[in-house]
Design a protein around this nucleic acid. Structure first.
Lengths: 246, 246
DNA sequence: CGGAGGATTGAATGAATTCAAAGTCGGTGG
DNA sequence: CCACCGACTTTGAATTCATTCAATCCTCCG
């Protein structure tokens, strides 16, 4: 149902009720954006321009896209909005593995069931590409394979950065790094639009919501940032933040 | 110098002074092993059996294999011994991204310079495969591409697990998870041979060396483990450890 | 305008770190 | 062969930082 193309090879015939999408540089349509991770800015570069058919799907804020343990049938690219991938510990604590914004992919896994769940942080539009584990990598032509590989490597790099962020760092270091990352991904200086709640941020950087709040307030008192509204951050002293972050 | 084959395609002609190696299931030669991560056991399965030429290299304990910032010319597979990949914060703190044992790869990166450095935890033997970023993915035949892709996905999974480990978890949870991971990778039950120092462990799980030591001692007092020698751990109550880890 | 969920702030607690000292182990040289 | 040295590890006490628990404050929506 979710999938359209045969294993990574375009097959327009199967593109039924839904629009076809191309996995290409700047391919995202200009939908009214309610929530980029950072500010609207330069689209994230994807190192491919390969035609790949997929099915466009919409999810309302908070909706689950797939659950931990569910069979892997697709991987996804974000067209608009923000998605989080996460796991839940036995005591209920949530750990957010990553936020995925326009142009980024998620859900690409080797095993046959998802190790993480995915949820819409904001209302969002994604494209599902048929994918059922490593076997799916077989058929595609060289260029498609290369595209998917590039995307996987991008995930790997982001995940690596994340685990370095979580290592032995203070709350201030983590949050400075988090904000700088958002600013970089968002594109322009000036303001960052937070797509996610404080709780999301806390679960991403491995802190409590109170510590996140306190640290942001401290940053503001120190004139490192301004918080004109609850979901908007302005970097006032980027170099000091960089210094802090490491 | 380090590289032997043309981009991921076997080219025996270039295999000059050094032995050729095949990236295959159970390909590792039976060298006298001084340091697997865990106990000697079932070889880590690699989901490929593709011929791939590479150059065999040896590194003494503590030696640097490549440095952060260095140009990416190869990725590596561990034949024997253990390798760590890590970064250094500006204040000198080290963060270990991963330990890589027999059969595992490291150093596969998309960018043109290494974001991490790699060092020999023990005396070790690795094979270097020519690799210069995403462009290297172009030439190979389908099967080689698939092999490399599978390896990249394996790295991704390990890195994901690591970042979940580092999130909001207590020292006991982190170390229980660490020991269970080693035990699983090592193969058999019974004993775990720690290839790495307490400092290495601390830098991997994001704790101080003192906390690692104290927690191990506490585990021993609680009969979760035994520590017959400094580099040897016996799991005495695996289910309790699993419970602890989450 | 009033309610509810999310965010901020405060005070007390607790876990991990830091600083400091003692113990262990392996290796080297007498 | 034994004693000593040095690096690594363990243990102890005090401190620090983030968490927990609790109360208040926004802000958005109905």
């Amino acid at each position: 149902m979710l999938t359209v193309s045969a294993a990574l090879a375009p097959s327009p015939a199967m593109v039924a009720a839904n629009a076809e999408n191309r996995l290409a540089r700047n391919a995202a349509p200009a939908l009214p954006s309610r929530g980029s991770i950072g500010v609207a800015g330069a689209p994230r570069q994807v190192p491919t321009s390969v035609a790949l058919a997929g099915q466009v799907l919409n999810f309302a804020e908070g909706r689950e896209i797939y659950a931990e343990g569910e069979a892997v049938r697709s991987f996804y690219k974000v067209i608009d909005g923000v998605v989080r991938t996460c796991t839940f510990a036995s005591d209920g604590r949530r750990q957010i593995d990553g936020f995925h914004a326009e142009g980024e992919i998620f859900g690409l896994e080797m095993s046959d069931e998802h190790r993480l769940s995915a949820e819409a942080v904001t209302d969002c539009t994604v494209v599902a590409y048929r994918w059922a584990g490593l076997a799916s990598f077989n058929g595609g032509d060289g260029e498609t394979a290369r595209a998917v590989f590039g995307l996987a490597m991008q995930c790997l790099e982001r995940t690596r950065d994340h685990s370095l962020l979580l290592g032995r760092r203070s709350a201030a270091q983590k949050l400075a790094a988090f904000l700088l990352d958002l600013a970089e991904r968002g594109g322009e200086d000036g303001g960052i639009d937070l797509a996610m709640s404080r709780q999301d941020i806390a679960d991403y950087v491995g802190l409590t919501i109170e510590t996140v709040s306190r640290t942001f307030s401290q940053f503001e008192r120190d004139h490192l940032i301004a918080l004109p509204s609850i979901r908007h951050v302005v970097l006032r002293n980027r170099s000091a933040l960089v210094e802090l972050a490491d």
